[in-house]
Design a protein around this nucleic acid. Sequence first.
RNA 1: GCGAUCGUAGCUCAGUUGGUUAGAGCGCCGGUUUGUGGUACCGGAGGUCGCGGGUUCGAACCCCGUCGAUCGCCCCA
Length: 436
Amino acid sequence: MSKTPQAIRGTQDIFGPDAEAFAFVVETFERVRKLYRFRRVEMPVFEKTEVFARSIGETTDIVSKEMYSFEDRGGESLTLRPEFTAGIARAYLSNGWQQHAPVKLATHGPLFRYERPQKGRYRQFHQIDAEIIGAGEPQADVELLAMADQIIRELGIDGVTLHLNTLGDGDSREAWRAALVEHFRAVKDELSEDSQERLEKNPLRILDSKDRRDQRFVADAPKIDQFLSDDARAFFDAVTSGLDAAGVKWTRAESLVRGLDYYRHTAFEFIPDEGSEAAGKLGSQSTILGGGRYDGLMESLGGAPTPAVGWAAGIERLAMLVGEKRWPSIDDFPIAVVPIGASAEETAQYISSRLRRGGFSVEMAFRGNVKKRMQKANSANAMIALIFGDSELDQGIVKMKDLESGVETEILLPNIPDDIVGYLVEKVEAKKAASL
RNA sequence: GCGAUCGUAGCUCAGUUGGUUAGAGCGCCGGUUUGUGGUACCGGAGGUCGCGGGUUCGAACCCCGUCGAUCGCCCCA
């Protein structure tokens, strides 16, 4: 193209309805997270590379080929965060947050992964994230999942189900993994090329392969349930019965595994139901929220053994699913202020400012002739316009036009906030009632 | 890293087997009562057809390369 610089591949400039949906996801998250008493935490977007390399696992794709790493001027290797959990764990250890344990943390922001962009996947993407650190009880898992469920529900997203599995404790997981390797190695030549790779690198992943050649052998593969210790089984039972009590719908997904090394016990993903509207909107990216328990992570960063559980969800993916069934709110209908003439424009600033300080959104039309200003009022979605020039101001009034009915009434200047606001609130309430 | 499709006005796209000044809708600006919008009518601005090279008398159209986008595989939110 020309000399104008382009945005970097896999990054996006979000504007308009997409940006509104994005903000709606974040606002909903912030509101619900307070109901569950999760505390807000802010962290750097970059860390020493070892923070991610050691915790996520050297052999995972994220660490081996998807990190944005660079050397700073001191020659130290730094990395833009590819996920939240590792950085939160590091912050927990560096700041001695053990003193707050068990601590419930929530954050959101940008993450970076050097991947091929496609629908619902970007190189800079955004997540909301929730973690409970220092709690080994299954009740922590339940509360965390209940919050996830409520957020999705309050976003108006339907047709999404919680898929739940357990990976057992460390020993259970290792025994299961060994049995899986043995099972698949016997038929290695008949597996897909990808799965032959996975056999060495990440055998659990063969279980959710999309390749038909693999699926034949997945059905009779060893199940985690055969390897669960009594404790691990009791833990999982407590999680599932807790979810039932909390009214969170879930389904068992025996072959659900998570990619990263640090997961133990509970693993879960919220996935659109097959054939649902949500599934169609997401393309081949199916998971909108995923997480699990990571009891081993703190040790990999040199901390004391610390149980923890958490999840993260892609804001862009959630935003794609947000419905338009939001009730009309008073902010959707600004008051249009339409001054005519220079002295009226000054008064318009005064009136606008009073209305805004009173909590009402105001669109002030200050360009072009009256016709242009009225067009502006209309395209701003205003329901009422305040129109006034010298002749009105001399009389100490403004004209209030109902833009739906076209009816104009006169308002005395001193009555401006109250009369207008009362009129507008009434109209919005009527709209709300009509939309129910 | 691999594969497929695609790149024409701000946006969505049309452009017949290569043929002369490249079109439409929407949006934008202006006008149809210079103090009144949503509908309608009129006018206008805006494109070296992603970029570079090649074939040809002639390329938006064919070929090669390159950059970018989209979708899928891997992986993942």
